[in-house]
């Protein structure tokens, strides 16, 4: 059951998601390269974080008490950039310079170049470890800020993810909340055919994490789960079941659009679809 407030929240967040999807398709289309599939699958997650959950100040990106976000699956950078621009970290015009020489928006997130990016990522399997480091650092400082991270399902094949899982569980990092963008596809095909993740929830639980499974495109479910995680007695993993390429019919569940930009014609078609949705 949705309350009136929730209905208002849902409308607000979904409207931002629609805008972010439009940005993402246009950014990658204009850049002529990038990763549309895994960028579109995590739109709701990032929008709920930056426009609902996280305490942050776009006018003061280095605010010491801000909640942190680590995009461990760094190839979804366009989604992060659009969200940061819409939150007010930098002008939206910057988005159209993605991946160009001299742009503040690199192919993968760069904390030294882009206001609002808390950690440089791109090489998979490292961001979650760094998020653990942040959570440990904040805990040592008695800083109440929290750390959020997003990993990919394909990325979960990296051993480093499980090294981080073990460390966070051991230290009971209650200030750490991670999402898995479970869109079920990786570059070479379906994850279950390449190297299956098996019972992913059981895996995280066995490492000492509190685990939730959500529909990764249901903003209210994501928000409610994020609220639950505030009171966790261990690190939290939210397995978000998503659709790769979500929101653009010919990109949905397509392996091809993992790392391929739309042509100009495809881009125009995708933008129209998003506008009419």
């Amino acid at each position: 059951m949705e309350t009136d407030t929730e209905r208002g929240l849902k409308e607000r967040l979904e409207s931002i998601c629609k805008g972010v999807r439009w940005d993402v398709v246009r950014m990658i289309g204009l850049a002529g390269s990038g990763h549309p599939g895994g960028s579109l699958s995590c739109v709701e997650i990032l929008v709920c974080l930056y426009f609902y959950k996280m305490r942050h100040r776009p006018s003061d990106p280095q605010w010491p008490e801000r909640d942190r976000f680590v995009l461990s699956k760094g190839h979804a950078a366009p989604t992060l950039y659009s969200v940061l621009a819409r939150a007010g970290y930098f002008p939206r015009e910057e988005l159209w310079k993605l991946r160009r020489l001299g742009s503040m928006l690199q192919g993968h997130p760069d904390m030294k170049r882009t206001p609002g990016v808390d950690l440089s990522t791109g090489s998979l399997g490292q961001g979650l470890s760094a998020a653990c480091g942040m959570a440990l650092g904040l805990r040592i400082q008695r800083n109440p800020a929290r750390v959020y991270a997003l990993i990919g399902d394909g990325e979960s094949q990296e051993g480093g993810i499980w090294e981080a899982a073990m460390l966070a569980g051991h230290h009971r990092l209650t200030n750490l909340v991670a999402f898995t963008d479970y869109n079920s596809l990786q570059i070479d095909g379906p994850c279950c055919e390449i190297v299956s993740l098996g019972d992913i929830s059981a895996k995280w639980r066995s490492f000492g994490w509190e685990v939730y499974e959500v529909d990764g495109h249901d903003v209210l479910e994501i928000c409610r789960t994020l609220d639950l995680a505030d009171n966790a007695s261990s690190p939290t993993m939210i397995i978000a079941h998503t659709v790769k390429g979500k929101g653009v019919s010919f990109m949905e569940n397509s392996v091809e659009f993992h790392g391929k930009a739309p042509t100009r014609e495809e881009m125009e078609r995708a933008l129209r679809e998003i506008e009419e949705s």
Binding site: D118, Q126, S129, A131, G133, G137
Partner: peptide
Amino acid sequence: QNLMATAAGLAATGK
């Protein structure tokens, strides 16, 4: 590997 990436995160909080 975790040692180094975790160290990076700690450093990102000012350590």
